[in-house]
Design a protein around this nucleic acid. Structure first.
Length: 795
DNA sequence: GCGTTCAATGTACCT
DNA sequence: ACAGGTACATTGAACGCG
C-alpha cells in the first residue's frame, strides 16, 4: 500500500546482521508510524592516481580481503571542481566502510578515499533526496512484528520513499518539561541530590507536576514522569539545556533507583549523539537553549530572559528563584508552593518559546537537511556544510574530508572613520547580501578557483582586485547555485512578512526566521574562510572581502561625485545625507555600475558619532533610538550605566540640551549615592571563556567564578558570571563578589559612579565639551535640582 | 618605593 | 567549531624618579 508521511526522525540500526534505516513519521491520516527501509546506499570512493589504470584497481579490490564488498565500478567525479576518476566501492555492511577505506588508502594507485565519513542515516537522506520535516510517499507493507516499538502502525518499505510537494506541518504533540533538583549547597549532583519537582505541559493544554512531597522518593517522581510521557506519547519533547544536562541528570537518577529512563518510542534510554545532542528514538528532543543563540539582544541566556524577550512571560510578573535559594524554598513548607509555581512557570516559558521557535526550527531542519533534533545543536558552519553536501551530491562533487588546516588570516571588510558629532537627516544605505551577491556575480566558489599554477580556462576568469585571485567564469560554481536559492527563499519570507503587522507574533517568528536564513546565507562567506570547513578555500573568502572593499570604496566615490556627504560606513553600508533625489539616483547608478543592489536600510532624523568606529546612536523617524555598539547595548556594563547613557542619548538626540543631560547624570549619581538604585542595576555580567586556572591575568569575573566554585557551584566555560564591585582596597579583581553572595551594604557605590556611570555618560557628552570632572563635580543643593521623576515623569 | 606608561589580555560588539 | 575589524577596561611589567 502507499503511505504518505511526514518525516519526524530517523535512525540507523542493525538487527541480526540486517542493516536498516528506521523512518519515524506521521502519516497523512495522523497516525504515528515507523517505516523500516532495508535498502540503503552503502559505499565510499577510492580516487585513483592520474597515472593508474582504474580497472586494474577494480581487480585488486575484488581479489583483496574485502568480504563485504558487493560491487565495484569506475566512476567520474569531481573534486574541488576538477574531474577525477574513482572506484565506487559498494559494501553490503555499512559498518565496514571506514575500515575498508582505511585499508584501501594504503593501496598503490589509490590517491585517497572519500565519503567513508558520512553517517549512514545522512547517506540515506542525501542519496534518496529525503527531507527531514518533509512529506514523502512510500510503497510499503504493514507488518506486526514490533517488539518494543510504540507506534500506531509499522511498515516495511518496498521501495525508496519519494519526496512529495506539501508544505503544511502535521499537528504535532509537544510536551515540555523542566526540573528542580535539591541541593543544600552548590550545584546539584545526580549521585547525591534528588529531583524534587518535574513540571510538564503539553500543547493540548495539560499541565502536570510530579513532586517529592510527603517524603516521596524521586524514584516515584521519575516513574510518574516516565508513565506520563508514555501515556501522552509526544512527538517532540522540549526543554531548556536538556542536551548534556537534564537528560543526563534524569538518567543518572533513574540508574540510582534501578529505573530505566524509557521516554522514547523504542524502549531505549536517551543517547548522546552527533554534535553532542541527546537523541530519543522515534521522538524529537528539542533543546531551546540551542535557539537562544539566534537572539543577540538576550545577553544572559537564561530561560527566564528568553521568555521575557519573546513576551512569553515577563520577568516583572513573576518570582525568579535563584539556584542558590532553591533548597531554602523547598525546605520551607510555606515557600514550597512558590517554588512549585516557579517550576511550572518555567515549563510554561518552555511551551511559549516553543511556539515562537518551533516553526523556525522545522524550516531550518527542512532547508539544511539535518534532522530536527540535530539541527539546533549543529553550529552554523555545519548547517552550511550539510546544505552544501546535499547540493554537491547532485553534481558529482566528492565531499572532501575534514582536515586540520593551518590558520592564515586575511583582510576583511573596510570600515570608514565617522565624522564625529551630530548630523541631521542621514540615510543608511545597505548593500543587500553583499558577500553572497559578490560570490554569485564573480562566481567565487571552491570549485571555480584557479590557482596561480593552473592554465587559463577557456571561458576566461574573474580576477580579484587587490589580492589577484582568479575564478573561472564558466561553468557556475556550486556556491552560486546554493546562494541564489537561499536568497530566493529569504525574499519570499520577507514578502510574506509585508502582509503582517510588525507587532504580531507571526511576524516576529518570520522575522527571526529570515534573520536566520540571512545568517546562514552570510555564513557561506565565513564558511569559505573557516579552516574547519571541508571546502575550506581561503582565496574564496579573501576574494569576497576584497570585492567588498572595492565595492564600498566605489560607492563612496560615486556618492561624493553626487555631492552627497558620507559620514560613515562599515563593510556593506554607507551613511550619507538624505537628499532624496540624489540618493535615488545614486542607488540606480550603483546598480548599473556595480551590479549590486543598494537600498536605504534606515533613515535617521538625527545621528550621533564619537571618534570611534562601530559605535553610534541615531534617532529614527518613528522616534525610536537606534543604538549601536555603545555601552547601552553591551552586556558587560552595569544596568545603571546603560540606563544613564540611553537617557543622555535621548536628551541629546531629541532635545539637544547638553545642560539637561548634564543635570540628569548628576541627579542619577546623587540617587545612587542615596542607595536608591536597585541592586540588580549594579550587576556586571561577563562570560567565562576558559577554565579559571587558564587565565594569564587576574580578572574580576574569574575571581567571582572562583568564589562560587569554592562554595560548590560548578563553573563551566561559557557561563555568564554576574558580579558586583564591593568596598575594599587593592586591584579591582580583589574587590569583586558574585552578586548572589553580596549585599547592597558591601557595594562600592563610588566605583559605579566613577567607572560605570561617568565613563558611559562622558562617552557621549565629551563630544559637547562636558568633561568627566564636570559630571562628577557640581553638587548643587538637592532642593534646587530636579529629581529623576521630573525628568521622565512617574510611571 | 611609588606613580606613570604602555603593550598585552580579555570581552563584547559590528557587519 | 562561520569571517575579520574594532573599542575599551584592566592588568602587570617596564620605566622614571633621588
Amino acid at each position: 500500500m502507499k503511505i504518505t508521511f511526514w518525516l519526524l526522525d530517523l535512525n540507523y540500526e542493525k538487527k541480526a546482521d540486517q542493516p536498516e534505516i528506521r523512518l519515524w513519521g506521521i502519516s497523512s491520516s495522523g497516525e504515528r508510524i515507523l517505516i523500516i527501509d532495508r535498502n540503503l546506499p552503502s559505499y565510499f570512493y577510492a580516487v585513483v592516481n592520474e597515472d593508474t589504470e582504474p580497472t586494474k584497481l577494480l581487480e585488486e579490490i575484488r581479489n583483496g580481503d574485502f568480504p563485504s564488498v558487493k560491487k565495484v565500478e569506475v566512476v567520474e567525479r569531481k573534486f574541488f571542481g576538477k574531474p577525477v576518476k574513482a572506484v565506487k566501492v559498494y559494501c553490503g555492511d555499512p559498518d565496514v566502510i571506514a575500515e575498508y577505506a582505511k585499508e584501501l588508502r594504503k593501496f598503490e594507485g589509490v590517491k585517497d578515499c572519500f565519503e567513508d565519513d558520512i553517517r549512514h542515516a545522512m547517506r540515506y537522506l542525501i542519496d534518496n533526496n529525503i527531507q527531514p520535516c518533509g512529506w514523502h510517499e512510500v510503497e510499503a507493507t504493514e507488518t506486526t512484528d514490533s517488539p518494543n516499538i510504540k507506534v500506531d502502525k509499522l511498515y516495511l518499505a518496498k521501495a525508496t520513499p519519494k519526496l512529495v510537494e506539501k508544505t503544511e506541518t502535521p499537528k504535532l504533540r509537544v510536551l515540555g518539561f523542566s526540573t528542580i533538583y535539591y541541593s543544600q549547597e552548590g550545584s546539584p549532583k545526580p549521585e547525591r541530590n534528588p529531583i524534587v519537582i518535574i513540571s510538564t505541559a503539553t500543547n493540548c493544554g495539560d499541565q502536570e507536576q510530579f513532586s517529592a512531597d510527603e517524603d516521596r522518593k524521586d524514584k516515584h517522581v521519575l516513574e510518574d514522569f516516565i508513565d506520563y510521557v508514555q501515556q501522552f506519547d509526544p512527538d517532540i519533547i522540549v526543554g531548556y539545556s536538556v542536551n548534556g544536562q537534564h537528560w543526563q541528570y534524569l538518567q543518572e537518577r533513574c540508574k540510582e533507583s534501578g529505573l530505566h529512563l524509557f521516554v522514547d518510542r523504542g524502549q531505549t534510554e536517551p543517547r548522546t549523539s552527533v554534535y553532542s545532542h541527546t537523541s530519543l528514538t522515534g521522538r524529537v528532543n528539542l533543546d531551546l537553549a540551542d535557539y537562544v543563540e539566534e537572539f543577540q539582544e538576550i545577553k544572559v541566556k537564561t530561560l527566564e530572559n528568553f521568555a521575557d524577550f519573546l513576551g512569553v512571560m515577563k520577568i516583572e510578573n513573576r518570582t525568579i528563584i535563584e539556584d542558590i535559594d532553591i533548597a531554602g524554598y523547598w525546605n520551607d513548607k510555606a515557600k514550597r508552593e512558590t517554588l512549585k509555581k516557579f517550576s511550572l512557570d518555567n515549563t510554561c516559558c518552555i511551551m511559549g518559546i516553543t511556539e515562537a521557535v518551533l516553526g523556525f526550527a522545522i524550516q531550518l531542519s527542512n532547508l539544511v537537511g539535518l534532522p530536527l533534533d540535530h539541527v539546533g545543536t549543529a553550529a552554523a558552519g555545519f548547517r552550511v556544510e550539510w546544505f552544501l553536501i546535499k547540493k554537491t551530491h547532485r553534481i558529482g562533487e566528492l565531499v572532501p574530508k575534514r582536515i586540520d588546516q593551518p590558520y592564515r588570516p586575511y583582510a576583511g571588510g573596510l570600515v570608514l572613520k565617522p565624522i564625529p558629532g551630530l548630523h541631521d537627516n542621514i540615510a543608511a544605505l545597505d548593500f543587500k547580501s553583499m558577500y553572497p551577491n559578490l560570490m554569485i556575480t564573480y562566481n567565487l566558489s571552491p570549485d571555480t578557483y584557479v590557482s596561480p599554477t593552473e592554465s587559463m580556462p577557456a571561458g576566461g576568469v574573474y580576477e580579484t582586485p587587490e589580492v589577484g585571485h582568479k575564478f573561472r567564469k564558466e561553468p557556475p560554481g556550486f556556491y552560486k547555485e546554493v546562494l541564489t536559492y537561499l536568497i530566493k527563499v529569504r525574499s519570499e519570507i520577507r514578502a510574506k512578512m509585508k502582509k503582517l503587522s510588525p507587532t504580531s507574533p507571526e511576524y516576529r517568528v518570520l522575522d527571526s526566521r529570515q534573520k536566520a536564513i540571512k545568517v546562514i546565507t552570510n555564513a557561506t562567506y565565513g564558511y569559505a574562510g573557516w579552516t574547519g570547513a571541508r571546502w575550506y578555500v581561503k582565496p574564496v573568502a579573501e576574494a569576497a572581502a576584497a570585492y567588498g572593499r572595492h565595492t564600498i570604496q566605489s560607492a563612496v566615490q560615486m556618492a561624493e561625485k553626487e555631492e552627497l556627504k558620507v559620514v560613515y560606513g562599515d563593510t556593506d553600508s554607507i551613511f550619507l545625507e538624505n537628499d532624496k533625489q540624489k540618493v535615488e539616483k545614486l542607488e540606480k547608478d550603483i546598480m548599473d555600475k556595480l551590479k549590486l543592489e543598494i537600498a536605504p536600510d534606515k533613515v535617521y532624523t538625527r545621528i550621533f558619532f564619537t571618534e570611534a568606529k562601530k559605535r553610534y546612536a541615531g534617532l529614527l523617524q518613528d522616534g525610536r533610538l537606534d543604538i549601536v555598539g555603545l555601552e547601552v547595548v553591551r552586556g558587560d556594563w552595569a544596568g545603571i550605566a546603560k540606563t544613564v547613557q540611553e537617557k543622555v542619548l535621548e536628551i541629546i538626540l531629541k532635545e539637544q540640551s547638553q545642560k539637561k543631560a548634564l543635570e540628569y547624570v548628576q541627579q542619577v549619581i546623587r540617587e545612587l549615592r542615596q542607595e536608591h538604585v536597585p541592586y540588580s542595576d549594579l550587576i556586571i555580567w561577563k562570560t567565562l571563556t576558559k577554565k579559571a586556572e587558564e587565565y594569564e591575568v587576574n580578572a574580576s569575573h574569574v575571581e567571582a567564578a572562583k568564589m562560587l566554585k569554592a562554595k560548590g557551584w560548578e563553573m563551566s566555560v561559557g557561563d555568564k558570571i554576574g558580579y558586583v564591585i564591593v568596598t575594599g582596597t587593592g586591584r579591582l579583581y580583589e574587590r569583586v563578589k558574585p552578586y548572589v553572595l553580596a549585599t547592597y551594604d558591601n557595594v562600592d557605590l563610588e566605583y559605579y559612579v566613577t567607572k560605570q556611570i561617568i565613563p558611559a555618560a562622558a562617552r557621549i557628552l565629551e563630544s559637547f565639551g562636558i568633561t568627566e570632572e564636570q559630571l562628577l563635580a557640581a553638587k548643587p543643593n538637592p532642593k534646587e535640582t530636579k529629581t529623576l521623576t521630573d525628568f521622565f515623569g512617574s510611571r
